[in-house]
Design a protein around this nucleic acid. Sequence first.
DNA 1: TTAAACTTTCAATAATTTTTGAAAATTAAA
DNA 2: TTTAATTTTCAAAAATTATTGAAAGTTTAA
Lengths: 167, 167
Amino acid sequence: MEYQEAKDEFISTWGSLGTLWGINKAMAQIQALLFISTRALTTEEIMAELQISRGNTSMNVRQLIDWGIVKKELKAGERKEYFSTEKDVQELARIIAEERNRREIQPVIKTLKEISSIQDDGTEKTKELIKQTKALHDLAKTADSLLVKAINHKQNWVSTALLKLIK
Amino acid sequence: MEYQEAKDEFISTWGSLGTLWGINKAMAQIQALLFISTRALTTEEIMAELQISRGNTSMNVRQLIDWGIVKKELKAGERKEYFSTEKDVQELARIIAEERNRREIQPVIKTLKEISSIQDDGTEKTKELIKQTKALHDLAKTADSLLVKAINHKQNWVSTALLKLIK
DNA sequence: TTAAACTTTCAATAATTTTTGAAAATTAAA
DNA sequence: TTTAATTTTCAAAAATTATTGAAAGTTTAA
C-alpha cells in the first residue's frame, strides 16, 4: 500500500466510523483530512480533495469549529481562511468526550431525573418505571462523573484510567 | 407528571438517544418499552404500544436479540413468543460496551494498523500519515484494553473505574 | 396430513438526512 | 465608495435509512 491509497483508506474509514456514531460523513472526512495534513488547508483544497461542494464544506467546517476540534488560521496578506485540526489524539479524545457529555448525556440525565421523580401511585407498573429510570439515572450520573474526571485530566486519561483499573 | 406521560417521555427520550448513537429509533424504543415493563411482551403488544408495523417489530426485536440485550421467552401452552430485556443497568452497559467494541472498535484497530504500517518513503506527508494513524491506533488499543477489562469486570464497572480514577 | 397461529422476509414506499449549487451576504483591497 | 474575493445560506435534489404490509415461510395442534 502506498501513500495515496493509505490516505484514501484512512479518510474513508474515518468517514464510516463517524456515520456509525451519529456524525455525518463529510464532517468526519474533513477532520480526517486535516488530521493527516502537514499544513492548514483552504476550503478550495478540502473541496478538491474530498470532492464535495462548497456549501457542504462550509457547513461542516463550521460544525467542527463549534465542536472545538478545528481552528481557523489567517495568513498575513491572504484573504482566504485556512483550517487545521487538533493534532494530539489525547486532546482530541478529551474534547469529543466533553462535547458529547455536554450535548447528550446531560440532557438525558435531566429527563431521567424528572421521570424517576413522578408520584408513586402504588401500582406495580409505576414502581417499575421509577425503579428502572432511577437505576439509569444513577448509571448516567456515575458515567458523567467519570467523564468529567477524565476531561479535566489532560494527560493521557485513557491510559491512566486503564492503569488504575488493572491494579 | 403521571404514569402514562412519564412512560411516553421515557420511550421517546430513549428513542432519540438511540438515533444519536447510530441505533434506530424503533430498536431503542422497543428496548425502552421492555425495560420498564413488569412482564415479557408479545409482538402484538409491542406493535400496539409503539404503533409500529409487524415487520418493523420483528426485525428490530431480532436485532436486539443479536445484540444479546433481549431474550425470547416461551410460555407453556402458548404459541406466541414473549420478549424481555436485560433489567440490570450495569449488565446492560456491559453488553453494549462489549458489542460496540467487537463490532466497531476492532475493525478500526485493524485498519489503522494496516495504514500505519505502510512503507515510509521519506516524504513529510507519509511520515505525518504514519505518525498520526499510529497515535490513533495506540489510543484505540488502550481504549480497547480498558473496555475489555471493564467487560470482564461484571460488578458495577463504571463506579469501580470512577473510584479508582479519583484516587 | 391439514389448517390455523404465528413469524419472517422483502420490495415498495415513506421519512429523514445529506449534499448541492447558485444567490445573498460579508469582507477587505483598490 | 466600488469591486472582487470569499464565505454563508438555504431551497431543491439526491442519497440514505426506516417502515410498511402482504406474501411466503414455519411451527404446532388437531
